[in-house]
Nucleic acid binder design. Sequence first.
DNA 1: GTTGCCTATGCAACTGAGTGCATAGCAGAG
DNA 2: CTCTGCTATGCACTCAGTTGCATAGGCAAC
Lengths: 182, 182
Amino acid sequence: MALEHAILVSLLEQPGSGYELARRFDRSIGYFWTATHQQIYRVLKRMENDGWVDVREVAQDGRPDKKEYSVAEAGRSALSGWLRDPVEPETIRHDLAVKIRAVAFDDPSALIAEVVRHREIHVARLEHFLEGEKRDFPDPGALGTRQTLQHAVLRGGIAFQRMHIEWLDDVLATLHRLRPDN
Amino acid sequence: MALEHAILVSLLEQPGSGYELARRFDRSIGYFWTATHQQIYRVLKRMENDGWVDVREVAQDGRPDKKEYSVAEAGRSALSGWLRDPVEPETIRHDLAVKIRAVAFDDPSALIAEVVRHREIHVARLEHFLEGEKRDFPDPGALGTRQTLQHAVLRGGIAFQRMHIEWLDDVLATLHRLRPDN
DNA sequence: GTTGCCTATGCAACTGAGTGCATAGCAGAG
DNA sequence: CTCTGCTATGCACTCAGTTGCATAGGCAAC
């Protein structure tokens, strides 16, 4: 499980509240890890009990108070230990692949629309990533350690989206070959 | 959830027992979906209760009896309905990406070994996929519908592994640039 | 002054998936 | 004739993650 560790990294990059973390998980960190605010609050509570993070009540004006979390020494060493632990590559779960094979027993037309829809989603994500790259890493030669690493991860996301789009084009061509009338 | 549907597709391609399904999930279907035998037996039981599959006790010689499952009409229409239902692209969960960003707060050396290990795993998978491609689709021009679709899915797996290997090379170069002495 | 929206935190219930363990038939090695 | 290993099925426990719901402060629009 890496949600704890993703939160630790995010809090090391910038301390913040559960709400702020949830928003980050919609943005940069969310490029490669997702979490809802409920999960984040639950895990933060557990991490607080385990002494991995420190909490500080912060009064804000114009907004409700928030609890600002920051990484404690125990959290830092937990992260350090995890970094030394081997993790297995994520197991692949791909609904669309199941659907594609299922077309052998059903009508392809519905799937073509679905594949086109997925392609659009991946194109949108790619554009989103490329915008983020242009905004955050305009001069890749002049980055600090943290930015260099963030950029490497983002390049992974970009490569993933591009690969996906190419493959979906391949799938669409295959489906059309099976059904030349569509 | 698509495990049910992956099982339906697999049983449509070829009826079989839970044990046989588990082995298929280590091979062709496992290229893009994984499941342990416990999961498969549990889901098969549920699918049987829901009338999605039919069971037939088969006596074998030299081996224990098995239950051979095949897709019932209700299962076929459930699959058909699911095909028409939009599914969302899988959420990305990438431990390694978390680890890469974490390196900003720790020593890179341990991660380099981990990245090399992951690269080896993906190279092995790529070779495995390419062998499967050579074995099962030696003449891509002369395939039936089912094989054409299976091949398209396999090409996706191949593209995924290649993309991953290239990205890990990129990451390794980045890590070495940060630590020229390693 | 009520309605809608954003910030902010959280509980409860459910579900999917993983881990560990148990059982049993049968074969071949030693 | 026992041990190892493969085939074959399954239960129990645990945990991560999703969904739905609840609460509450403050702001702006109408």
